[in-house]
Design a binder for these strands. Structure first.
Lengths: 249, 249
DNA sequence: TCGTTACCTTGATGCCGGTCAAGCCCTTGT
DNA sequence: ACAAGGGCTTGACCGGCATCAAGGTAACGA
């Protein structure tokens, strides 16, 4: 089921050089020449349809992927527990770093909509990183950033109320869309309420209810999966709100 | 307050070559020669006393550290929220990887007891990694492993009951002690109940109560901070226990 | 067009675990 | 030796959120 067929190298239209995600992506800061070398190792598997898997938990790890367009969710299955969403991946984000350690994919990654990715065979990437210090740094930075994000998430999950979690989630998405040149105030949620709930450690009913409450308060407006933030300041206040669980005084 | 004074290079007794943590530590798998180069960049700040900080959130990131003996906790301060424990670090574990991304320490790291560390100035480490592919791989693997652990933690925090969290926590520690050649069944908790609670997203009272319950059930035995596991199988069962929150059927 | 299905919303109920409070134990310093 | 303070335990109470349940809505295929 791996999209081995349909892979192809860069064409003029898929070149990094012309990619709008340059400012976010791995080859950030590479010289023209290095960028060309980087480009040369990229493969382009055929696009994924909604629900299709980019990788499956336990599969052999071969490549990193960068989302080119669309979005995906990462799922972790654990013994005696329902699958859990651990990440959502947006364009420009690197997928699969957690597979390096054991040469196995640590989670499954599934497209939430039609999704294009760039594939970076890891051994070739590492070879290139040996020669290009900037690429090496960027790889470190990328992993480090993800560590940082995961830690934030752990804090979110461990000490905060449903309202705070939802507010942080929405703000986080908003920020990520802004960085991608999309509207930070109105955007489309490609994931279901149930995905959001799983990700935030809440029941899907709670997600629904909190969204409804935010709407009543005029903080945002949701219709199906279209979301508009009306009062960002209020959302920030909701996310930080002094008194969550364990928050003390 | 940085322990700049008292740093010194390796002496015969601090050499990696003779270190009992070799099988766990970063230079894993290096040839004799590469190991010597690695050894040469290590510095040894003076030991930390209980409560002393190895790094403080927001400080400039310069070095990675490896715990040589003792243990530390990592704390993250967030606006309008009490500090939260995000990691406990045991001997052989690398500290500070999350600082690479922004060249700032992402959290504060504080000793839980008398603690020795090895300091690895990051720019020198990276220089060496350029020449030694094995070291590079090990660095990647190390970060990747941490990503994986953080994800496990996120799952723990988001979908599980207090009992499951505690049981997983104890099992995790047990496993880590085993890997370090210590008894996996009887060990010392260098962190307070409150630290454990913060780490697991529970009130310290809950930690105390759950431990008491486990004790009544004969699963383990705790006296102050000494812990003995009596029935590991039961603990595994408690950790996985089909029916947690969100677990569905 | 209709039926099927997946997704979402809203209500009612109950439990887990947070919070507050009181007291014990052990350590540390004078 | 005693006082003081930090850490731990245990009890009582109650609130937030999971769970169960019952529709409503939208998308899709026949």
């Amino acid at each position: 089921m791996k999209p081995a067929v349909g892979r192809r190298r860069s064409t003029s239209e898929t070149r990094c050089e012309r990619c709008t995600l340059q400012s976010l992506c791995l080859p950030l800061g590479l010289e023209v020449e290095a960028l060309a070398s980087f480009d040369a190792i990229i493969e382009h598997p055929r696009p994924l349809k909604r629900g299709q898997a980019l990788m499956r938990q336990g599969e052999r790890f071969e490549s990193l992927y960068v989302v080119r367009s669309g979005s995906l969710k990462q799922l972790l299955a654990q013994p005696g527990q329902r699958d859990q969403v651990t990440h959502f991946h947006l364009p420009g984000e690197v997928v699969g770093l957690d597979g390096i350690a054991e040469s196995r994919c640590y989670g499954s990654v599934v497209a939430l909509e039609s999704t294009f990715v760039c594939e970076l065979p890891f051994h070739r990437l590492d070879e290139l990183a040996e020669q290009v210090p900037e690429l090496r740094s960027e790889l470190y930075r990328c992993m480090s950033r993800e560590l940082r994000n995961d830690q934030r998430m752990m804090c979110l999950l461990s000490g905060r109320t449903a309202d705070q979690r939802l507010a942080s989630f929405v703000l986080g998405l908003s920020e990520r869309f802004r960085a991608r040149g999309c509207s930070p105030n109105c955007f489309h949620l490609s994931m279901s309420r149930s995905d959001i709930g799983s990700y935030l450690g809440l029941a899907l009913e709670t997600v629904s209810r909190v969204i409804a409450r935010f709407q009543e308060q005029g903080v945002l407006c949701v219709k199906g999966r279209e979301l508009c933030i009306h009062d960002q300041a209020a959302l920030v206040a909701l996310a930080e709100e002094g008194v969550g669980r364990h928050s003390g005084s």
